[in-house]
Nucleic acid binder design. Structure first.
Length: 447
RNA sequence: GACCCCUUCGUCUAGUGGUUAGGACACCGGCCUUUCACGCCGGCAGCACGGGUUCGAGUCCCGUAGGGGUCGCCA
């Protein structure tokens, strides 16, 4: 039988990083086994059930590239979904739950209690076979000893999570339940429910949780808890996915940098960790850098132009060769997508914005004669390319009897407005003589 | 309170009875260099603790401590 897994988020209005990782593990397992990835919306709680809240989750998954084979096509529960096992919104599955509840009632496996319906739960310890944790024997807690039965339908008629979750997994032929470890203790309830319905429970795999860097529980308000933080924070989806895959799963050898295709190839349940993992932004940053620089030229260009546009910098006025050359000067140097505009924006700006601190350090009165001399040297150059620019700068520095850096820094700041940036000589070559001299002049008047 | 899971460098991890306990990120030096990076070389740093079992334990067992989770007419 082919693998069928599902990601079943509750529309809380944001996609939690832990939820995203659960989705990723399910998705990877489905793709690895050539199985089916189902997306089901657990919107049984009216209070937080809105179309917008669902869309946030769908958008987050789409951004990551975690496509689903069956499930909603939009956040609108009334809209037709994709797949044969729908509806994929629990709010639309009332009839199915009614039928299953009646089945339990008819078999005396459930009963009315103060207007609600409770399930007759076993008092015996339940063994939970788990692909990650092994066989877990779950005994009753002291409160459960007093009354092991639990509510499956509220007095307002609405079925609760435990019931609908199990019913849906049965109806949707789910073969593997891969979810957060926070559900491990509750799984005894689910297993008994499966048995009550005469069904073989699916395989369970409870994956460890993601904690904050200090080891505390990650909650909604913590930085990095929401997927949008990464989208807006300049991270590539492939980097986020790669990092998330490494939190709680290991390929067993020392490979860490992996594109999605390799993740799919290598992911399996036996590499899943049992201990919770702490989130380390520094490592994500490193992977982000690695993924950015392994981007193909065209893909990088697409990202760069989007970033420049978002920063209000128009690249359309320049010809393609110029833009490509500018981008070529910063590949391998960009660690975060959000740094692109600041790093090469000056190529496309008419008037350079000079960083105050850079100006204070480099565009000083003492450096004015240096920059002025360099301007003279550059104005008389037969060829205006990286080699000639470097040669002229060095000989000018020698003539002035100062170190190169006293010419380099003013020139850099004059041209780019910043102390850091692409290779100076190459950047000036691309800018061209007229533009470089113009920027030198503007800086000289300000010194 | 009860029940369940977990515990190797700061962090993510490799390790399935015999290893100088490996890698990565971060950090600290050095080299390279026109800046910042990259890269290269080197360094710091770990088996939570206590008992067993065994010729031998990071690896197996028990206990303790610590962390996380669950016990709801939330999901």
């Amino acid at each position: 039988m082919s693998v069928r897994v599902r990601f079943a988020p509750s529309p809380t209005g944001y996609l939690h990083i832990g939820g995203a990782r659960t989705a990723l593990f399910n998705w990877l397992y489905a793709r690895h086994t050539d199985g089916t990835f189902v997306l089901r919306v657990e919107d049984t709680d009216d209070a937080r059930n809105t179309r917008e809240a669902v869309d946030v989750i769908l958008d987050g998954l789409r951004w990551l590239g975690l496509d689903w084979d069956e499930g909603p096509v939009s956040g609108d529960a009334m809209q037709q979904s994709r797949g044969e096992n729908g509806p994929y919104f629990q709010s639309q599955r009332g009839d199915i739950y009614q039928r299953r509840i009646q089945e339990l009632l008819d078999n005396d496996l459930a009963y009315d209690h103060e207007g609600a319906i409770k399930f007759r739960m076993t008092r015996e310890p339940v063994t939970i076979p788990d692909l990650v944790a092994g066989n877990v024997v779950r005994k009753l807690t002291d409160r459960e000893e007093a009354d092991p039965d639990f509510v499956i339908v509220r007095s307002d008629g609405k079925p609760v999570f435990h019931l609908v979750n199990v019913v849906d997994d049965i109806e949707m032929d789910i073969t593997h339940v891969i979810r957060g470890e926070d559900h491990l203790s509750n799984t005894s309830k689910h297993i008994e429910l499966f048995k009550a319905f005469g069904e073989e429970p699916p395989k369970f795999a409870h994956i460890p949780l993601i904690l904050n860097n200090d080891g505390s529980k990650m909650s909604k308000r913590d930085t990095g808890a929401s997927m949008t933080a990464y989208k807006e924070g300049g991270y590539l989806p492939s980097a986020v996915l790669n990092y998330l895959s490494l939190l709680g799963w290991s390929p067993k050898d020392d490979t860490e940098l992996m594109p999605l295709t390799e993740l799919i190839k290598r992911f399996d349940m036996d590499g899943v960790q049992r201990a919770n993992a702490r989130f380390d932004m520094a490592k994500l940053d490193w992977l982000n850098f690695e993924h950015i620089r392994s981007l193909k030229q065209e893909a990088f260009k697409t990202q760069a132009i989007a970033q420049l546009q978002a920063a209000g910098i128009d690249t359309a006025a320049r010809d393609d060769d110029y833009t490509n050359a500018a981008l070529a000067l910063c590949t391998d140097k960009i660690k975060n997508l959000n740094d692109i505009a600041g790093y090469i924006g000056f190529f496309f700006l008419d008037a350079v914005e000079i960083d105050a601190e850079a100006a204070e350090q480099a565009l000083t009165p003492e450096n004015r004669p240096h920059l002025a001399a360099l301007r003279e040297a550059y104005a008389g150059l037969a060829k205006f390319n990286a080699d000639s620019l470097q040669g002229a700068l060095k000989s000018t520095a020698a003539a002035l009897e100062v170190k190169n850096k006293f010419l380099v820094m003013p020139a850099r700041v004059a041209c780019t407005g910043s102390k850091v940036g692409p290779s100076l000589y190459h950047l000036m070559e691309l800018l061209g003589e007229a533009e470089v001299l113009k920027r030198f002049d503007a800086a000289l008047t300000a010194m």
